[in-house]
């Protein structure tokens, strides 16, 4: 089995707000194996972005703070590092691709400068070598005429091209892990497919490991080797992609999967959809119980009084549900 390159144990990350303390990430544990694509899915506000940004310490601290747990990158504890120490990891050990390429590039700086900036203050490379690397990486992410694009500003590029530039920024420092936070959400479907294929191809070519965050279940199914399902700051299910999509154990995962639209109208009519009631509960001062209990069709009293631990129901298939595995669920 491949080595664990990133280990997250019982991570808790909260934000101080005027309304109280928001526990955005609550007891999240998972590990990323070298060379795999690990997907994280969940709806807006479930803590997937905050979790991923914890790894590079990009969340604003304050108001955010670590409330417990550990993040280990190749055995090194990240939560204890200073900003200066984090700079040795950001960009060169772990790269980050952001959600919205329209707003994630600095409008007043040329594309080339933004890519080259990864090398600023690191020493070792001459100006010419840095430029060569930038042009190389632009070519690698599939940008035509890199010399021309190098001198252009972000507004002169299309959306898909901007996302390619974002990928170039994440890759240019030759990191071993790439965290991609919904990299295709703001792109249209054809561009989305191109970018996903590009990311997959780069993984094979460069031996990368991905942490891939998305709210689109089909995208995650397409790209990931293993998948984590998050709900309101907790991991509810964690398994191989194939297993998770064919045999979901957590009621929330089942609900999510049943909501994927099917193109064929005949199949769509036959498909069973599970509807759930209510809304996502407030993340401020949550009760110590299963977070899905209020909306779960199978909830019992036990679900409303104690937090279900993540247990390995089948080899490699973890689920945080008191009743998972029972007949009919």
């Amino acid at each position: 089995m491949a080595e664990n390159i990133l280990e997250i144990r019982n991570l808790r990350f909260s934000f101080r707000t005027y309304g109280g303390i928001v526990q955005s990430v609550r007891d999240v544990s998972f590990e990323v194996r070298e060379g795999e694509i690990l997907g994280i899915v969940g709806e807006s506000g479930c803590g997937k972005s905050v979790t991923s940004q914890c790894i590079l310490r990009l969340n604003p601290e304050p108001p955010g703070f670590f409330a417990g747990g550990s993040i280990k990158y190749r055995g090194e504890e990240i939560t204890a590092k200073s900003d200066r120490e984090m700079r040795k990891i950001r960009g060169v050990e772990i790269g980050f691709i952001f959600q919205d390429p329209m707003t994630s590039l600095n409008p007043t700086m040329t594309v080339g400068k933004q890519i080259e900036e990864v090398f600023v203050g690191r020493g070792g490379l001459s100006r010419r070598e840095v430029k060569k690397r930038a042009l190389e990486i632009l070519r690698l992410v599939g940008i035509n005429e890199p010399e021309r694009r190098y001198k252009q500003y972000p507004h002169e590029l299309s959306g898909g091209m901007k996302q390619r530039v974002m990928i170039a920024i994440a890759l240019v420092g030759k990191p071993s892990i790439i965290i991609a936070d919904e990299p295709t959400t703001s792109l249209d479907v054809t561009i989305e497919a191109q970018i996903l294929d590009l990311l997959k191809g780069l993984r094979d070519a460069m031996g990368l490991t991905y942490l891939f965050i998305a709210h689109d279940l089909s995208v995650v199914k397409y790209i990931s080797d293993r998948v984590i399902v998050m709900y309101l700051g907790t991991v509810v299910e964690f398994s191989d992609t194939e297993e998770l999509y064919t045999n979901p154990l957590h009621p929330y995962t089942q609900v999510l999967l049943s909501s994927i639209p099917v193109a064929d109208p005949r199949q769509a009519r036959e498909k069973k959809r599970i509807m759930i009631q209510g809304e996502i509960p407030s993340p401020i001062n949550p009760k110590d119980c299963c977070r899905f209990a209020e909306r779960c069709p199978y909830a019992t009293d036990a679900c409303k009084s104690s937090l279900p631990p993540l247990r390995e129901l089948k080899p490699g298939h973890f689920v945080a549900c008191h009743r998972a595995g029972e007949a009919g669920i």
Binding site: L56, L58, R90, F96, L105, E117, V120
Partner: peptide, 20 residues
């Protein structure tokens, strides 16, 4: 968002403030 991008590159705080 681009400030976060700049921070993710591992450049100094001063440079993020000054250049971005």
């Amino acid at each position: 968002d681009y400030i976060k991008t700049a921070r993710s590159k591992g450049i100094s705080r001063f440079r993020v403030t000054w250049k971005h």
